[in-house]
Amino acid sequence: MSTAALWARRYGALIRAAWLVDLQYRADIALWLLWGIIEPAVALGIWWSIASAAGGDVDGFTQLDFARYFFAVTLINQLTQAWDAWSIDHWVAEGEMNYRLARPLNPVHEAIADNLAYKARTGTIVLLVWLLAAWFWPIVRLPVHPRRWLLAAVAIVLGAAIRFFNGFAIGLLAFWTTRATSLIELQMALGVFLSGQIAPLDLLPHPVAVIAHYLWFPYVIAFPVSLLTGVGDSASSVAHGFIGQIVWLVVWWGAYRLVWRRGLVRYGAVGG
């Protein structure tokens, strides 16, 4: 069997297993999803009121821009979400890492398959909610623009990969500390501002926006959102966005490899 066919079979089995596990927890997943929808809805509600009080727009963002922006944030946040740090913490604390290490397959592949299955399910639901909303509420309809949608799809995949390896690398710190999930929660709280979840980056105080652009956060959400909604899609900003995504993907993938190798040595030493 060729290597590609072998990997296709492995991933097929892993995704199928993850899909079936999720099916058992479909009610729980729906509840998590509720959270993922209400948070941006609250932000949209507040900005909508502010824009309305200011006579229609906030620094050039109209109510229509806010509506499209936060619908896109909801979808892209869902598609790039990474809960892996919590599962790794659980694996290490409960001893479930041991049998995963005994398998002839790096556990990272199981985590990737979990993500694909979970996001296929939740992403579809968010997309359906968006389509339903667009049916009744024309202003959240996006202008049809296949080339931009294709670019957005690529940016979402890269953004999801950055967030995945970021979460996985920090989660693996569980080999050393029991507070790895606190660290990821801290990072998530900062990410709400720096990735553009609470407001478009242009509305943040200037120094904060500048700091954000030197970090990976905007490349996970703000950049794919700008591609999808078509705000700031000049050739240079698109190129800049993709270069930033690739740089940060390499950085966090490298961090994951480093922490994984060191962590295994340490884990073996403790358990052995």
Binding site: A27, L34, A41, V42, I46
Partner: peptide
């Protein structure tokens, strides 16, 4: 619904909206 583990999540999600004055939201919300 014995199978649901995260019932409190419903509360957490809805309570998010209580961070700001009720009058701050547009009519529909």
């Amino acid at each position: 619904l014995v199978a649901i583990e995260n019932l409190p999540t419903v509360f957490d999600a809805l309570f998010e909206a209580a961070r700001y004055p009720a009058s701050a939201y547009p009519k529909a919300l």
